[in-house]
Design a protein around this nucleic acid. Sequence first.
DNA 1: CGTCTGTCGGCTGTATACAGACCACAGGAG
DNA 2: CTCCTGTGGTCTGTATACAGCCGACAGACG
Lengths: 228, 228
Amino acid sequence: MSANAAEANLFQVRRFSDIAVDVLRDRILSGSLQPGQRISEVALAEELRVSRPPLREALRVLHGEGLVVLTPGRGASVASFDLESVSQLGDLRIALECEIARLAAERAADDAVEAIRTEMTQIESALCDPATPYPRGVDFHGTLAAAAGNPRLATAAGDVKRQLSLARSRTGSPPERARRALDEHHAIFDAVVRRDPDAAESAMRTHMRAAMAAMIASIEAEAAGGER
Amino acid sequence: MSANAAEANLFQVRRFSDIAVDVLRDRILSGSLQPGQRISEVALAEELRVSRPPLREALRVLHGEGLVVLTPGRGASVASFDLESVSQLGDLRIALECEIARLAAERAADDAVEAIRTEMTQIESALCDPATPYPRGVDFHGTLAAAAGNPRLATAAGDVKRQLSLARSRTGSPPERARRALDEHHAIFDAVVRRDPDAAESAMRTHMRAAMAAMIASIEAEAAGGER
DNA sequence: CGTCTGTCGGCTGTATACAGACCACAGGAG
DNA sequence: CTCCTGTGGTCTGTATACAGCCGACAGACG
């Protein structure tokens, strides 16, 4: 099955519109296209060596993911989030991540639990050794979502996470947050290991509230600095 | 603002692709297009008096809403859900509705609370008088989501609800569920009135678990009857 | 008789072309 | 000098046209 799935995925991305979706998502999240920036269809299509119809389909997909805003008659632009939008996205993320934590505590397979443990040790060692800022491809929440065994929930949580990542693309998270986040991750993980869904949800809620508070504070500080 | 919003919405739906989205969504949810049915782009485009590119964009949007499945090289088809997908959607809905209930208990304005009360009395009178099966446009969860004051959360919950509605399109919900659901709605509403977020979330979780159990039972019964 | 292969039809995926709307800027009137 | 208006350009929205792939069916071979 894995060979079939891999082969199917290889052929699945052969559509130009899907390639455009991936390229555009990377450009938006990497900051190559900044929030609020207008996207010219003809210019982008020419740059990607793609015709306009596939590009327009890609823009519709990214609009569904919340990364692109489409205004009828005025075209597309990279999504930009004000504080209210960030707050709304935060509530949405709380809903999804808390349920993920609950389900992970209820149903996570043992090897999935071990995968989370491995991730956490990697993050921890990276924090102790400032040489490596953050290991690539390590994603606590993504691994936890996989452990919860609900792909739709994981996809939804990933979409919201990317929107929030775009919202704070200008302001990096403060360095002291990483240490606190690690402790909060430990609390969630402990609850998952103990198979305690209520505790896992509660710990996740605490973690999310702290993360959102820090993020909102960063954005407010950046906004105040920008006005100065 | 409401005049502006209405005017903006009127002009916003002038794109053929958006019209196609609305028409297709209605056809899928009304059962005019049944789950699993293939959608021919040329035939549907000709029927809707629309060219294929706008129709393809509409299909991409509905794919993002989970109502259409797009297989590269093989075209589009109406989404069909097996029991595992329904279970996954149920967990997703639990996550969203529970957070909505919590937020409604925390922040709902007084008039929003009264709007919920009005809806519930309408549903209750409709249940007592079997002449009117169900009042049109009355939607407890939608009103509750509006009371929670988070449009993104409300949209996400609405999307999931529509997917589940499509999943059980063949099997109607059993009549005794309506009465139990009304009681469960009362419990949620009472918690919202008492401004008790924990109780609201708990009551919503109870309600969702019962609703999902009833739905899965209906689908299993229908599947067993179909095999017979 | 079963199976494989080649061909044909239909469909999706993509590109090009055209029409209409929105915006900016210049010119003129008050 | 300011505001309005007309015109031009640019872009989106839509339609049409072509190429490539998938699937089905018929025919031939084992």
